[in-house]
């Protein structure tokens, strides 16, 4: 059997990806996580001295704290299997990537294990975030310098 022929057969037998179902699950779970985040935002604005501008930081930290609990008890994994991008895209998913790596590599010690592996999964997000922020800001600076746009 030729590789091409085999891959056709494999495709035939393998169940297709349920695109619609996956998308809906991601929508609902992702939406619910963001709604919880929104509630946290209100909590900080009403009960503490935060404004709409400054409330982002405590909200994100609180959500990552929730993520730590869910990750530590193995529940974020279950959520991820159900919701996929719905739980990976919110900042809690970023927290899960960092925290799960830290927990996993505890057995290799605090320095080489936790320290060396904590950004194993989340490092790519930081890399691309920083690199693209650099280029976008650079382009904007150039455009401002030559007078195309203003700050």
């Amino acid at each position: 059997m030729e590789p091409k022929e085999y891959q056709d057969l494999e495709k035939q037998v393998t169940p297709p990806i349920p695109y619609l179902k996956n998308a809906l699950k991601a929508f609902f779970v992702g939406g619910i996580i963001c709604t919880i985040g929104h509630a946290v935002t209100y909590f900080y604005i009403i009960f503490f001295d935060f404004t709409e501008k400054t409330v982002g930081n405590p909200t994100v930290s609180t959500m990552i704290f929730f993520s730590m609990l869910l990750t530590g008890f193995g529940l974020y994994k279950k959520l991820g299997q159900y919701a996929a991008a719905g739980s990976a895209v919110p900042v809690t998913g970023f927290g899960n990537a960092v925290i799960s790596a830290a927990i996993e590599h505890r057995t290799e010690g605090v320095v080489l294990g936790i320290g060396g592996n904590i950004f194993k999964l989340a490092g790519t997000v930081i890399l691309f975030g920083v690199a693209s922020a650099f280029f976008v800001a650079l382009i904007k600076l150039i455009l401002v310098s030559i007078g195309v746009v203003q700050w």
């Binding site: 993520s67 730590m68 927290g95 960092v98 925290i99 830290a102 996993e104 590599h105 605090v110 904590i118």
Partner: peptide, 20 residues
Amino acid sequence: SSGISAAIVFGFIAAFIFKP
């Protein structure tokens, strides 16, 4: 900075509490 620092701090703490 808050997202990254929160993730690092909570990750570090969690590593001493939980076992996968």
